[in-house]
Design a protein around this nucleic acid. Structure first.
Lengths: 194, 194
DNA sequence: GCAAAGTTAGAGCACTCGTTCTAATTTAGC
DNA sequence: GCTAAATTAGAACGAGTGCTCTAACTTTGC
């Protein structure tokens, strides 16, 4: 049978160095700029030995990110101020930008598409479950604003506000962000008082 | 001086045939699939004579779309049921998908980036102005939900719901859409009664 | 220190890309 | 119908792509 053939000590570190390079390129110039030669140059290592194909690399980048995201989301929704903590995660510029790029890249990389769909489902399920339990604490009517709507609204709002800010669009995103903070103040205060 | 050298009769039709082809490719396989040879094949004409460069083509696709969008948005916001009409536009799958692709493409096509920024600013300004006038009619508190927040929320919500639906993600988007319709019903009814 | 396995750099392959050029064809205006 | 301009197809160029192969190099376990 196949021998164990264990990798060397430094290998996992090199894998993550390649993943870091891929993320950085994606954030700077978009997913289409993530080419084998560009990653090689940025990481100082050739990717093909460690990942085989670009598809595999994209999937690995996504997986590493997705695992962190789901863990952090779970913690946030179980924290003292679930809405505020959730918003902090959703409105993180780096994470949002990467998610947008990876989702766009998934359009023509089917192995990646499956991963993206899975994360979308898991994250939304997590959010909806958590919201089902806490929405009433915030004084939000569940018939008028069901968890599925609130979840989509939070994610969408974060997406638009963050993207407009990152891209430097002149869309009063600062004012919107301030209003969201005020809203969170009021909601979290109201929840504590209940 | 330069002679008039007027183009032939069929030329404008051919230009728009190329634009149509570019849109179709983008919707099907993403902006990165819009290559000169692919467009040539899809449209049956060579694009370089009519547009010069791919950058010019992308800008032309965006401009044609942007002009229609702003006009339709203006009409919607001046209609009898501004929120509902606006939502209908924002949640149009084809328009949303194209906007996402073009915005992503703008990441590494600077001539396009300038156009996108301009549309974002103009559309948002239009929305904020209209909302400033009608928000109170809907019984929405302007301090708690300022126009800039409502505008970002509507666009973000549409983005997420439509994208999840188009991509077949299992995120309860159907339920969210139904809740939005109920919300619109209530809001528009309340506005009429005022 | 030595063999075996892990890892590397570099060349190379077959392909696609955006764009330009040229020669041929089609059309418009007279 | 003729001429000048508009438009076309097709080849070609240099560059970049994902990926493979090979020969060298480095580390590991004994």
């Amino acid at each position: 049978m196949a021998e164990p053939r264990r990798p060397r000590a430094a290998t996992t570190e090199k894998r993550s160095r390649i993943l870091d390079a891929a993320e950085q390129i994606m954030l700077k110039d978009g997913y289409a700029a993530v080419t084998s030669r560009r990653v090689d140059a940025e990481a100082g290592i050739k990717l093909h030995y460690h990942f085989g194909s670009l598809d595999d690399l994209f999937v690995a980048v996504f997986r590493r990110r997705a695992e962190r995201s789901v863990d952090r989301l779970r913690d946030a929704l179980e924290s003292d101020q679930p809405l505020r903590a959730w918003w902090a995660i959703a409105s993180d510029p780096r994470g949002t930008a990467l998610l947008v790029e990876l989702t766009a890249a998934a359009n023509h990389r089917s192995p990646l598409q499956a991963e993206v769909a899975e994360l979308a489902r898991d994250a939304r399920r997590l959010e909806i479950e958590a919201l089902s339990a806490i929405l009433e604490d915030y004084g939000i009517d569940r018939d008028e604003f069901p968890p599925s709507l609130v979840a989509a609204a939070v994610q969408g709002l974060a997406l638009v506000v963050v993207q407009d800010e990152v891209r430097g669009f002149d869309t009063a995103h600062g004012e919107a962000k301030a209003a969201i903070e005020r809203l969170l103040d009021r909601l979290e205060r109201g929840r504590g008082a209940r």
